[in-house]
């Protein structure tokens, strides 16, 4: 149960608090480019969530078995030496993301024709999405750290999937605002990307309000456990 709560907090953290777009400012290009209409923004968000999870799975496998210091495969190859190959991170991740997107596109095209139509031009565009590279690097940070409880496969996948959902939340909110913005008389010099970036900044300020929610939640859960424990202890004595 403890583990489940931890994952829940992690999911919440990456979906809302450490939002890719509004906290780390990665993935700005699709955020500005495809946020003109809500349905398109939702499609883009789905595609990013989908690809980011797959890319996270692959990059975790590679980081864990090949790249990190003392990874089993590298040790085997170098004849028992402990090597740190994390210098290769950018090259390998870009490689893996591009390859997996290509593969996914072919796979979806063959077996999920309607999905392929729905994703349309988004899927190839995602290849160069920095949010995905960022997720991979963030996962690498946890995997390479010693004794990090978040370095496992499941936390990495939760991080990536909910990071993608956070991206979707941000881009859909933005698209909703921009649809309304069409009715406003924006000064000429700010039209288009200008007003969108300003709006994104204000949106990011609003999302700052989530800061600390994760710690509060953890505190709450811990307190609950302590209460439960102290409640369980006398009950046990009575028996």
């Amino acid at each position: 149960m403890d583990y489940l709560f931890e994952m829940l907090v992690l999911a919440l953290t990456w979906a809302l608090i450490n939002n890719f777009v509004l906290h780390y400012f990665v993935g700005i290009c699709p955020f500005i480019g495809v946020s003109r209409r809500v349905d398109m923004a939702f499609g883009m968000g789905c595609a990013v969530t989908f690809v980011i999870t797959i890319a996270a799975l692959l990059s975790w496998l590679i980081t864990y078995y090949v790249l990190r210091a003392g990874a089993p495969l590298t040790t085997l190859l170098s004849g028992g030496k402990t090597l740190d190959l994390s210098i290769l991170n950018y090259t390998v991740y870009i490689f893996v993301i591009a390859g997996s997107v290509q593969f996914l596109e072919m796979y979806i095209r063959k077996f999920f024709r309607p999905l392929y139509k729905a994703f349309g031009v988004f899927l190839p565009l995602i290849t160069t999405n920095c949010a995905i590279l960022f997720a991979c690097l963030e996962i690498m940070k946890h995997v390479c750290a010693i004794n990090d409880p978040l370095g496992g496969l499941v936390p990495s996948l939760v991080l990536a999937a909910f990071g993608g959902i956070g991206f979707m939340i941000a881009i859909v909110i933005m698209a909703g605002i921009r649809e309304e913005l069409d009715h406003c008389d924006v000064p000429k010099s700010l039209r288009g990307a200008g007003i969108t970036l300003i709006t994104a900044g204000i949106l990011a300020l609003a999302f700052m309000g989530f800061t600390g929610v994760d710690r509060g939640l953890q505190q709450l859960l811990q307190d609950k456990e302590q209460v439960a424990e102290s409640a369980a202890a006398p009950a046990g004595q009575n028996n």
Partner: peptide, 30 residues
């Protein structure tokens, strides 16, 4: 050693990806 291992791993990765994508291209051909 690290240079050779790094180079070797990149090479292996490239070959594996190439094979997988090439296979997929034939297998999933529409």
């Amino acid at each position: 050693t690290i240079i050779f291992v790094a180079g070797g791993i990149m090479l292996v990765l490239a070959i594996v990806t190439a094979i997988v994508l090439g296979w997929a291209n034939v297998k999933f051909h529409v």
